[in-house]
Design a protein around this nucleic acid. Sequence first.
DNA 1: ACCTAGCATGAGATCGATTTCATAATCCCT
DNA 2: AGGGATTATGAAATCGATCTCATGCTAGGT
Lengths: 348, 348
Amino acid sequence: MTTIRDVATAAGVSRATAARVLSNPELVAETTRLRVLEVVQRLGYSRNSVAASLRTTRTGRIIVTVPDISNPFFSRVIRGVEEAAQEAGYAVLLGDTRNEREREEQYAEMLNRREADGIIFLGHRLPTTLARVLDRDGSRAPIVNGCEFTPSLGVSSAHIDNAGAAYEVMDSLYAMGHRDVALVLGPQDSPLTRDRLIGAQRAAEDRGLIGRLVVETGDFSVESGRRAANLLFARTPRPTAIFCFSDEMAIGTIAAARSAQIACPEALSVVGFDDIQMARYVDPPLTTIRQPMAEIGRKTVELLIAILQGRQSAPVSATLPHRLIIRQSVGAGPFARAASTGPTDERS
Amino acid sequence: MTTIRDVATAAGVSRATAARVLSNPELVAETTRLRVLEVVQRLGYSRNSVAASLRTTRTGRIIVTVPDISNPFFSRVIRGVEEAAQEAGYAVLLGDTRNEREREEQYAEMLNRREADGIIFLGHRLPTTLARVLDRDGSRAPIVNGCEFTPSLGVSSAHIDNAGAAYEVMDSLYAMGHRDVALVLGPQDSPLTRDRLIGAQRAAEDRGLIGRLVVETGDFSVESGRRAANLLFARTPRPTAIFCFSDEMAIGTIAAARSAQIACPEALSVVGFDDIQMARYVDPPLTTIRQPMAEIGRKTVELLIAILQGRQSAPVSATLPHRLIIRQSVGAGPFARAASTGPTDERS
DNA sequence: ACCTAGCATGAGATCGATTTCATAATCCCT
DNA sequence: AGGGATTATGAAATCGATCTCATGCTAGGT
């Protein structure tokens, strides 16, 4: 391959000048610059980024780890990350951790090996490798979290107000006349699950219905939603509304209801979370909380870059706006007052 | 940060020996090795991969570009890639090209800059940068294609028999008594679309029904499926079966049918392609072609590694097995013989 | 006891681009 | 015309790990 040396020789300048043409062109005289650029063209030279990184200690890369890349929620977030990273001149190194701690550590190790300038992790576990970096460098550590916010980590983060969103959902279900409401949680150890649960419980308490709130656990997958729903259908009294902490679980719940011949939304209301693309195409179209997925991704990049550029004294927690999207999967509950079956509009 | 130099000094050995402990431990005496490893532990040293790459001209990374990362089909393929890459000791640099040529070129350029050892592209366009590499290095060029196979590119590739799969689908629709069948294609310029179209047309010809085969074009997205379906519903005669070249378009078609009050599968049969996870959860569950998505991903990595290791003289085209999965979105057509409404079993 | 083969180790070159520092060339002002 | 400032360029050091080659050492064979 051609190196900067070849370019320099061919253009009759020193390596230093040739290199400057590419990285600090304003330092080079116009005529020289053009001559060098012509040679670059002719020889088809492109800079060896490895060598450049070694010297500059910048790689221009960021690592992003996701618990599950085939989860449509995450793939939207990643897309936002990708986009913002590219705009800022960074490439994305993607890691699917499959929710395994060991893989999370592996990717975190890459930061130490200088394979990337920073890392965004979308799970909720802080790999021990990163914890050590954080100890050492405090809020200057190039580490950002997305989606799940745990203040005690001391890491910048972008997310929505999960507790608030869950409160809204519950409140609207109660307003529609539901009393026996069930939750299908995500993994128990995730702060995201915890926050939503707290919000939901607060709503139940505010209505004096905390005693009737029942709970099952899933892992955000369609299949786990179906399983949880079947367990809930066996309960007495059977819940008239199920609030799932992911759209995929909600879709599993609807499928389970269909199998069990429980009409949705007439006999069972279902609410999801995320507003993945499929949410509007299932039957019935899903009422859900819309998370600004791409925005969350973009924001994490923004936070990371702020750290990399040295402007960031303390961890930032960015709360992005969510919105309750009303579609057709929620109907009136048994305690609805005749007149108000509630809103059923679809705003984009 | 600590370097190999610090380790060497602390352990009382030369840099060479310290480095050997980490990359060629069998060359170092047991006692020395243990002593060095102890120091590595104590100092929390981890190798600077940039420096190592510069010297070895290996990065241990592969680039993977996808037209759309939020497409569930691709995210499954990527997962397979990720998995196989990790097993082989490679990290994955993921690029979402959003179907834009410019972004494809950008990622391809990274290969030239030595940011990765090889590239797997899942789209169908060969970036010109790669074409140039291919010209120069022939089948030794570390480039592999996934999903879409274009023999003329001279690039190794992993994919299914798209024409054969499409033939099967059409054949089964005709066997079920359908005569007016419509296709919803993917992007026109993609060989994948072309291959499936060829297979479908061959089936139509074999039945003497090529004159009744109608065609619309989509872009694999749910929304494009809905649009295409609405156009098809306006035709006379209205097709009794629609074969979409992606599950997402099939889901869009089912949604359109619901809006138009056309019962599926009684009045309209729908077939998809890919067997994404959602396919079994929509209503009615979707008949489709199952592609071995993770396997395709794994295979591309395997092919790439074969090239990187220098064992590969000519481009390889790996055809992986697909399977027609019968669910409930296909019903008997108007020309069905009374007895045979066909199979409706669901094998996993 | 001597020789050879093989093992363990270190010195130093190397990968390719960047950057510091010094020098040469040019410019502008008094 | 002279001097200080400014601009353009080159020589050489540098980033950190690896690898070649040379050397010293040990073991085993005769």
